[in-house]
Amino acid sequence: MNDKAPSGAPVRVPRYSGSARINHWIMAIAFVILLLSGLSLFHPALFFLSGIFGGGAMVRWLHPWAGVVFALGFLMLFIRFLPANLPELTDFKWLAKIRYVVSGRDEFLPEVGKYNAGQKLVFWSQAALVPIMVVSGFALWTPGLDFLQSTFGIKATMDHRRLAAVVHAAAAVTTIVIWIVHVYAAIWVRGTLSAMIRGSVTGGWGWRHHRRWLKREVADGHVKSG
C-alpha cells in the first residue's frame, strides 16, 4: 500500500476501551433497527422493510423498544465521551478550514485533540436530537403515553400527538443525515474503523488526524514503541 515501507509495523495507539466499544455497537445495532423499522412506517414505498422484522405489527412493537435501548446507550456514551467533546478555540479554526477537511488535505488543518469539530458536532447534535426523539416517541407510543401520565402526570392531547409525529419524523430525518455523515467519515478516513473494532488506531492515523491527541497519548506513556 505504501511506496516507502515504514521500518517495521506501525505503532498502535489505544483509542477505545472494550466497554466503550460495546456501548457503541449496542447503539449501532439499535440504530440500524430504528432506521429500517422507522423508514418502513415513514414512506409507503419503504413498507417492505417491515418484512425484515416479521411485518408491520412487529415493527410497531419493536421500534419503540429499540429506541429505549438506543437512548439508554446514548446516555451512557454521552457521559463517557462528554469531557473529550467540550468545545474549544481550535474547533473554530478547524471549521474555518472546512474545505481542507472535505478535500482530505489534513496537513493544512490545526492539530486537534481526541475529537475534531466535526466529530463534536455529531456528538452535540445527537445529544440534542436524542431527547427530542425520546419525548416525541413517547407521545406516539401507548406504553409511552401511559408512562408520561403515570410518572409525570402529563396527558398528551391529540394535537400534541400530531405535533409529536411531525417532530419525530423531522428529528429522525436529521438524525439519519448525521448518521450518514458519521458512517461515511468512518469509511472515507481510512484506518478509523479499527478504533471501534480493535480498539486502537495506527500512530500514523493519530499523527494525520488527531496529532495533539497522539502527542498526549505518547507523553502519557499509552503508546508502546517498538
Binding site: K4, V102, G104, W188, G206, R208
Partner: peptide, 27 residues
C-alpha cells in the same frame, strides 16, 4: 453527496510518512 465525494476524492489514507512520524514521536 457522500457517494460522489468518494468517487471524486477517493479515500483519505494515512501515508507511510505519517506512520514514520508517529513512530519517531513514540520512540
Amino acid at each position: 453527496i457522500g457517494a460522489f465525494h468518494y468517487l471524486v476524492r477517493g479515500p483519505n489514507k494515512v501515508s507511510a510518512h505519517d506512520e514514520d512520524e508517529a513512530k519517531r514521536l513514540a520512540e
